[in-house]
């Protein structure tokens, strides 16, 4: 209670200053610098098993070399676009499907068993079928990405619709709302938190899938970049690739969070 009061009451600059001198921040900084220092020492010979790993300083230097090449940025762009295509497609198909399954009993009966049959198949297992089916490599990767996010979003939306409090719908109906109004004014807004949760989880899976698909079957992208560095035995390049993927994934999560905050101004996520 006291904590919550601090966070909402004080002006932003005061909060930042308080956080920087707080125990929590200092401990976090110690942990991260400690990790980097151990890594440096380990790579320089302290831990024999790390002999193959370049030091953080080497990695930073390599990162700089990568940053000035056009290929690096092209890879970033390619992967990001694939993630976006697959992710957006999954939302466009998944949200209506989840809403439909939650809203119409018959439709749910018709489609749910099939959906449950497909769901446990890991997305990457779709790679060969996807390559066989889709005409271009690009579309196959987008399809696998789609699969990765699709099941998550449907499960979340379906859960969201089923957990809408009965009173909300009853209240609307007693005020004379038509089924259409109930859907647009009650069901859809009440499902938004679940949609956002589904999106938050989905975006993580999507990056995972894209990276794997690129390693298996792509010829461009950050996954491919990392894999090529591996094939060339260029270890600093591998780590640069990993870090880039991590940053890209993190930025996408933040973007989804911003969208989520905008979709539901009444409630802050996390």
């Amino acid at each position: 209670m006291a904590n919550a009061a601090t966070m909402t009451g004080a002006p932003f600059s005061v909060r930042v200053r308080k956080f920087v001198v707080s125990k929590q921040f200092i401990r976090g900084a110690i942990a991260i610098f400690g990790f980097l220092a151990l890594w440096q020492a380990g790579s320089m010979g302290l831990f024999p098993f790390m002999h193959a790993i370049p030091t953080p300083i080497t990695v930073a230097a390599t990162f700089w070399e990568f940053l000035v090449t056009a290929k690096y940025w092209q890879s970033c762009l390619d992967s990001t676009l694939r993630v976006m295509y697959g992710f957006v497609a999954a939302q466009l198909v998944g949200i209506p499907l989840g809403l439909g399954m939650g809203w119409n009993r018959n439709f749910k009966d018709f489609s749910y068993p099939l959906f449950e049959l497909m769901r446990p198949i890991p997305p990457l297992a779709w790679v060969p079928v996807s390559i066989l089916f889709w005409p271009t490599n690009e579309t196959s990767i987008a399809f696998i990405t789609f699969i990765g996010a699709f099941f998550t979003i449907v499960v979340n939306v379906l859960g969201g619709v089923s957990s809408i409090p009965r009173q909300l719908v009853d209240a609307a109906v007693s005020f004379g709302a038509s089924p259409k109004q109930v859907f647009w004014r009650i069901v859809l807004p009440a499902t938004i938190p679940s949609i956002v949760t589904g999106m938050m989880v989905g975006i993580g899976i999507t990056w995972n899938v894209v990276i794997a698909a690129e390693m298996i079957a792509g010829n461009t992208g950050l996954g491919r970049l990392t894999w090529e560095a591996y094939l060339a035995g260029h270890t600093p390049g591998i780590i640069v690739g990993m870090i880039s993927i991590g940053v890209a994934g993190y930025v996408s999560s933040m973007a989804v969070k911003v969208v989520g905050d905008w979709l539901m101004p009444w409630k802050k996520i996390f």
Binding site: M1, A2, A5, T6, G9, A10
Partner: peptide, 9 residues
């Protein structure tokens, strides 16, 4: 008094 330097409840 909760949070004496801040909100001071």
């Amino acid at each position: 008094i909760y949070d004496p330097e801040g909100v001071h409840v």
